[in-house]
């Protein structure tokens, strides 16, 4: 086999591998993109661009890392950099303070059992839309951190790597992002936070 034929064969293998990754992870990537961009058209654009960019740098992909960890880094960076540059995002200063609402007092809860109960398994469309809308109110950095943690289930360390920042920053972004989201949802659906409604 000539050198050129070997190179071509390797290229074809990489291409085939990448094609399979696209088919396997497209839906997952789209779901993240949808939660980040807030709508189907921008989500599709973002995923398409992210896969094209990933393909360009596929020779740099370290296979000891899960593909989606690597890919999410590309996707979220693209989202934060490019979409903000194009002015598609409604941005909120990362240092902006957010005032929490005071709630009613209630009894203490059992800790630390954080797993959802059966009643929490089904979300109505109305609630889903409120949460989705609430996500769109967050700054891009907070939104990415919250989506990666709570929708994708990444650890803080992984998110720090994906977002190229420190674990302390990730912790802060997730915490502040969740608080802002909580306050947004609670304004619209206070019953979700009343004792007994979602327990």
């Amino acid at each position: 086999m000539t050198h050129a034929a070997v190179v071509r064969s390797m290229d074809e293998r990489l291409q085939q591998e990448f094609n399979e990754l696209v088919e396997r992870y497209y839906q997952q990537a789209y779901n993240i993109a949808y939660r980040l961009t807030g709508n189907a058209a921008d989500a599709e654009d973002l995923v398409q661009e992210a896969f094209l960019r990933a393909y360009r740098f596929f020779d740099r992909y370290d296979r000891s890392m899960p593909f989606m960890n690597w890919f999410n880094r590309i996707l979220t960076n693209l989202y934060i950099d490019e979409y903000r540059r194009r002015g598609r995002l409604r941005t909120v200063s990362i240092d902006e303070t957010f005032t929490s609402e005071d709630g009613e007092e209630s009894a203490t809860f059992d800790l630390p059992d954080f797993t959802p109960s059966p009643m929490e398994q089904v979300l109505s469309k109305e609630y889903s839309e409120a949460i989705h809308e609430g996500l769109q109110q967050l700054s891009p950095e907070f939104r990415v951190a919250v989506v990666l943690a709570d929708i994708e289930g990444h650890s803080y360390e992984e998110i720090a790597e994906i977002m190229n920042t420190s674990i302390g920053t990730v912790r802060s972004r997730i915490h502040r992002g969740r608080k802002q989201l909580r306050d947004y949802i609670r304004k619209r659906h206070p019953n979700l936070f009343e004792r007994g409604e979602l327990k």
Binding site: Q27, A43, E120, L123, V147, D150, I151, L181, I185
Partner: peptide, 13 residues
């Protein structure tokens, strides 16, 4: 809040 996010339906492209 975390549970609500986890329960968001997966969006199908």
């Amino acid at each position: 809040t975390k549970v609500l996010l986890q329960q968001l339906p997966v969006v199908v492209p």
